[in-house]
Amino acid sequence: MDNRNIIMNHYTSSPYKKDFNPDLNYQKIETKSDSCIDHLNIYVKFENNILKDAYFNGEACAIATSSCSILLKNCLNKTVSEIVEYIKNFDNMVNGKDFNLEELKEAIVFKEIVRQGHRKTCAYLPYQGLKKLIDKR
């Protein structure tokens, strides 16, 4: 599948985009862009420091939405420290530093797109949210 299709699939039919479920009692992080209208809510459940389940909702563009979907997909069943490493790796990619290609899996689709400055903020928004949540822990 080419990059465009990966992004569009995650944008239009992400298995992680769900309506809020109050019964689940997950930790929530709300992440909003300063420069545009992207607004995502991410809900996570950690067990023994491992991300066991996660979903998101909100109003955001194709890039922010698909990036959030891929982020959650890639982080499920990872430990907190593995997630921190993963986020750092993504951060390196979007900022043009050395990064581990294999670890990023589908998130690699954003490698070129983030060269459009304003799109970088969109792709990074869910990472910023999850990072904030982990920092709080």
């Binding site: 545009c36 209208i37 109003e59 955001a60 563009c61 194709a62 459009q116 304003h118 799109r119």
Partner: peptide, 21 residues
Amino acid sequence: VFSQDVAYYLNKYKVCVRAGN
């Protein structure tokens, strides 16, 4: 189509419009 994505599309053709609330 999400308004911001339309704005990005228009921007590719150097048309400046605002998306948002």
